[in-house]
């Protein structure tokens, strides 16, 4: 049952997006998000939608898989759209008036724009950071991007190592949880009836063995790492070295150019809503 939780949505492939350096992909996602919130003109939004579609097509990841991510935040999406729709006060006469509800043209625009922003944000960050990048590559990328912080004595490598280890043990723990649940069920444990307190108490036979085995895993892993002379990040070399290639620079340049044009467009084309940010 717990195995149904697919962890890490990495979708193996050989597309350009897969081959980009993880650092590039982190930067691209950040730039993309900034552009999304700077954009104010309709043409900019169309451009962003088009760009996202091109990236999705390029990644060769089935459309259905990518849209699963959207389904998860559908409620949030509808909620923000509804709030924007009903609470925006426009300047003209309301398009629709019903009891206390007044809907203005601005409200509709705002709801649509917010929805587009959230959807694109999820699609792009999912595409760059989860579907085409393994969790390990991602933490390597984060470590490398944050490495300047080492100068001010922030243990960046240790943090990255902790994230890597945590990610690596999630499937193991899921499997163990499954096993413990089965074993206790075989002894007649009942997890699904009774009141709140009874149900909480029913979790003890699962949580205690899990906690014990987690601590044991941690001890074993620490011993294994020490046996191989792990001493933290200083002087440590890597088996896979991250290197920026031409494609990384081209991609960054391309997206930055788009960002610049979106910014310029804001000043030359009538923008959609002057007060888009004030709510």
């Amino acid at each position: 049952m717990l195995k149904d939780i697919t962890f890490g949505q990495y979708f193996p492939g050989q597309s350009l997006l897969h081959r980009l350096d993880p650092r590039t992909k982190i930067l691209l996602s950040l730039i993309f998000i900034v552009i999304l919130f700077v954009a104010k003109t309709p043409i900019a939004f169309l451009l962003m939608i088009l760009l996202t579609a091109v990236f999705v097509e390029m990644s060769k990841i089935p459309f259905g898989t990518i849209f699963k991510g959207i389904r998860a935040v559908l409620i949030l999406l509808l909620f923000t759209a509804a709030i924007n729709l009903f609470l925006t006060k426009g300047q003209g006469t309301p398009l629709l008036e019903f009891w206390v509800i007044k809907i203005y043209a601005e409200g509709i625009w705002r709801a649509v724009i917010m929805a587009v922003r959230v959807v694109l944000l999820i699609l792009i960050s999912g595409l760059f950071l989860t579907y085409t990048t393994t969790p390990i590559a991602l933490t390597d990328g984060i470590e490398s991007l944050l490495s300047p912080l080492k100068k001010i004595r922030i243990p960046v490598h240790e943090f990255a190592m902790m994230i890597t280890i945590a990610l690596r043990f999630i499937p193991t723990l899921i499997e163990e949880t499954d096993r413990v649940i089965s074993a206790q069920k075989a002894r007649g444990a009942d997890f699904s009836s009774g009141g709140l307190i009874k149900r909480a108490r029913a979790l003890i036979p699962i949580l205690v063995p899990l906690l014990v085995s987690s601590i044991k895993h941690a001890e074993d892993l620490a011993t294994a790492m020490e046996c191989r002379c792990y001493r933290g990040g200083d002087g440590r070399t890597r088996m896979v070295k991250l290197t920026y290639r031409t494609r990384d620079f081209l991609m960054l340049l391309f997206v930055l150019a788009i960002g610049a044009s979106v910014f310029v467009l804001n000043h030359y084309i009538p923008i959609l809503l002057p007060d888009l940010y004030y709510f």
Partner: peptide
């Protein structure tokens, strides 16, 4: 049924908790 058919899983020492 599970009380009538007892199951001891592989490496059952994992199930100890009390």
């Amino acid at each position: 049924i599970r009380f009538r058919i007892g199951l001891v899983m592989q490496y059952p020492e994992y199930q100890l908790f009390d």
